[in-house]
Amino acid sequence: MDILWQYQFRIILLGDSTVGKSSLLKRFTDGIYSDVADPTVGVDFYARSLDIEPGIKIKLQLWDTAGQERFRSITTSYYRNSVGGLLVFDLTNHKTFDHVREWHKEVSEHILPHNMVYILIGHKSDLNKDRKVTQDEAEQLAADMGIRYVETSAKCNSNVDRAFQLLSRDIYELMKMGQITTRDGWDGVKSGLTTRALYPGDEDIELEPREKSCNC
């Protein structure tokens, strides 16, 4: 039986404008990096599949949110339908780090009584000489919030896949423990599809294009 994916997770990227959320997503989904990036207007969508463990494929639907205040009313409507969030700040801009708690608080309040699985991302680790946020500072903030911390660079393709894999695995482990479940009216986690279930007898038909994968 050709299994397209067992589960779909909706994950949202959060953080100030210019921290590099779009660059992370383009590197993760398409394996490309560009020094020039157009600012995100509202919300952009990306997708990629991961093999979380043997025989278990997870489809990630990734939402790239605009960091500017004027788009906040648009982006907040997407919080409730997300199961995971990457809180992204720029290691060379301390103000973006200072705003992480605000992003975390805003999202957490909007999704009550439910919770979201977070991971803290210190981006642009390749610009070490311009660094304004120490690793100790970032690790302490992550510890205070009870979440993981990973430093990434879309430009050098450092830890990009690892960040998404860690978040996806944390969500999957919570599902196995019964702490996250699919529920009516919520698209954060969806049960997967198989060709046999949808088209009995036509198991060789591919129902949708396979996700692009980064082989970097």
Rank of each mutant, 00 (worst) to 15 (best):
Y33E: 07
Y33T: 05
D35W: 00
V36L: 10
A37Q: 15
A37H: 13
D38W: 02
D38F: 06
D38K: 11
D38E: 14
T40K: 05
D44K: 00
D44C: 04
F45P: 08
F45W: 09
R48E: 09
S49G: 11
L50T: 07
D51A: 10
G55K: 05
I58G: 10
I58M: 11
K59E: 13
L60M: 12
Q61N: 13
Q61F: 09
D64W: 00
D64Q: 04
D64I: 01
A66C: 06
R70F: 06
R72Q: 14
S73F: 09
I74R: 08
T75E: 10
T76F: 02
S77D: 11
Y79F: 13
Y79M: 10
Y79V: 07
R80C: 08
S82E: 09
G85H: 06
G85W: 02
G85C: 09
L86S: 06
L87E: 10
D90E: 09
D90K: 05
D90S: 08
L91S: 12
H94G: 05
H94F: 08
K95D: 15
T96Y: 01
T96L: 04
F97P: 04
H99V: 01
V100Q: 04
R101F: 09
W103S: 09
V107C: 12
V107Q: 06
E109R: 06
I111Q: 03
I119V: 14
I119F: 05
K124I: 01
K124F: 03
S125A: 14
L127P: 01
N128F: 05
N128T: 13
N128G: 06
K132P: 00
V133S: 06
Q135T: 15
D136R: 05
E139Q: 14
Q140L: 11
L141S: 01
L141E: 06
A142Q: 04
A143W: 00
D144G: 03
M145K: 02
R148L: 15
Y149F: 11
V150F: 01
V150R: 01
V150Q: 00
E151V: 08
T152E: 04
A154R: 01
K155W: 06
K155C: 14
C156I: 06
C156L: 14
N157K: 00
S158W: 10
V160Y: 03
A163N: 09
Q165D: 13
Q165N: 12
L166Y: 09
S168E: 10
R169W: 05
D170H: 03
